[in-house]
């Protein structure tokens, strides 16, 4: 076992996942440590994004899919019939590949989730907006234009707004699905710095196509290939002395 058992916040046990007849994940068991960044890497179609979306039950939205195995979040299987996926998603936030702010003001983008979760009161909401935007290192850029549409922001700013929006729900885990793939290098660098800062408070699981990014930001790395978790270890180990031949071939750029 790679991780320290008492620091595990979420784990998958023998997870299989099917889109109709197609098996997208085969027997994936891995554990994620709290307040750490775990990167999931691998070639396109290897199942890394599928696994990420299983962790907050976003795959529920797809017709005709099926999950086997268990995903334990704080010891409880989130696929038990009596678990409400809405509750799971409140505790496990997500940032997507393409920035997807709502066509609302910056302020209302942040307060949308918390309001529906019951946070009210102008002062509370304002404090929440400031706190979330500061955490996402966007406050200084937008503090004077909170009433303007989020659609006016640049792509990099929009993505940080989406991070702030997820943080406003005060989740325990933040899932990031290739959060910088649609951004320019400067915005990417800002998000990477941000991840470094956020792991003090949150557990982060990030899917990335960019191996340098995985090496820079993550503490642990899992390598996926054809729906299987090939190797999961401390990032430094994966990128210097991987145990598996396939991992080595991928990170040295022999395929992918």
């Amino acid at each position: 076992m790679v991780n320290q058992e008492d620091r595990i916040i979420i784990r998958t046990e023998n997870v299989n996942f099917y889109y109709g007849e197609f098996q997208a994940l085969t027997d994936v068991s891995m554990a994620f440590e709290t307040n750490r960044v775990t990167a999931l890497i691998g070639p396109s179609g290897c199942g890394k994004s599928t696994l990420l979306r299983l962790l907050n039950r976003m795959n529920d939205l797809i017709d005709g899919c099926r999950v086997e195995g268990r995903i334990l979040f704080e010891g409880r299987n989130i696929y038990e019939p009596d678990v409400d996926p809405v509750e799971v998603r409140r505790r496990i936030g997500m940032v997507f590949q393409k920035p997807n702010p709502f066509p609302k003001s910056i302020f209302n983008n942040i307060t949308y989730g918390p309001r529906l979760a019951g946070v009210s009161g102008k002062a509370d909401l304002e404090a929440l907006v400031e706190r979330s935007l500061r955490q996402a290192v966007l406050w200084d850029e937008v503090k004077d234009i909170l009433g303007q549409s989020a659609m006016m922001l640049s792509g990099g700013q929009q993505q940080r707004l989406c991070i702030a929006r997820a943080l406003a729900m005060k989740p325990d885990i933040l899932l990031m699905d290739e959060p910088t793939s649609a951004l320019d290098p400067i915005s990417t660098a800002k998000i990477e710095e941000l991840i470094e800062e956020l792991k003090k408070t949150y557990t982060i699981i990030i899917v990335t196509h960019n191996m340098q990014q995985a090496a820079r930001v993550s503490d642990f790395t899992g390598f996926f290939y054809l729906g299987k978790m090939i190797e999961f270890n401390v990032t430094e180990k994966i990128f210097t002395k991987p145990d598996m031949k396939q991992t080595e071939d991928y990170i040295t750029g022999r395929f992918g």
Binding site: M58, R90, R91, M94, K98, P103, M169
Partner: peptide
């Protein structure tokens, strides 16, 4: 309506109806 709007909302722990 872009699917990404729905995803963004659901991922915030907002119910489908809301």
């Amino acid at each position: 309506v872009p699917q990404t709007f729905r995803e963004a909302s659901l991922a915030l722990g907002v119910s489908k109806w809301q």
